[in-house]
């Protein structure tokens, strides 16, 4: 497993952990459970995997290609999901005769998008590395 594959696993596992933590805390804390999304900050430690060791190359052109593809999939998919959710929220509020979309929904949406985007990016990266059977 190379350095960027470890980074991809970190992104996937941290995103999943954050979502699970939020889901577990929600029954007790309600909207305050959103604070558990702070766990996403643990992704910052992934930089330790790509630190240079001697003169050996850690990240190369193949990693850049895979990251580019995975980032595109992650960002485009989460943008689409966000836009569709916002359209859905506006339609629902219209039917319910509410004049505004609740801000708590936007707050949740923002954090879920972060988790979704990084989780999906990690997942796609791992799939691409697996497809190439990297040793």
């Amino acid at each position: 497993m190379n350095a960027m594959e470890k980074v991809a696993w970190t992104e996937l596992l941290v995103s999943l952990t954050a979502v699970v933590a939020v889901a577990l805390l929600f029954p007790w804390l309600g909207d305050a459970a959103i604070g558990a999304f702070g766990l996403l900050g643990l992704m910052g430690f992934a930089i330790l995997f790509i630190r240079r060791r001697g003169s050996r190359v850690v990240v190369d052109e193949r990693d850049y290609q895979i990251q580019l593809k995975a980032t595109a999939v992650g960002i485009y998919t989460s943008w689409m999901a966000m836009i569709l959710t916002l359209i859905g929220a506006v339609v629902c509020s219209g039917y319910a005769d509410a004049e505004t979309v609740p801000t708590r929904l936007l707050n949740w949406l923002l954090w879920l998008q972060f988790a979704f985007c990084f989780g999906l990016r990690g997942l796609v990266s791992i799939a691409l590395y697996r497809r190439q059977h990297a040793a």
Binding site: S55, D60, E61, R62, Q132, H133
Partner: peptide
């Protein structure tokens, strides 16, 4: 890998025909 400036995993993928290298590589 060290001589051409890539990771060993890239050479593995290349030798298996699972990766198309850049022109420079």
């Amino acid at each position: 890998a060290d001589r051409v400036g890539v990771t060993r995993q890239t050479i593995v993928a290349l030798e298996r025909g699972e990766y198309t290298p850049s022109l420079a590589l």
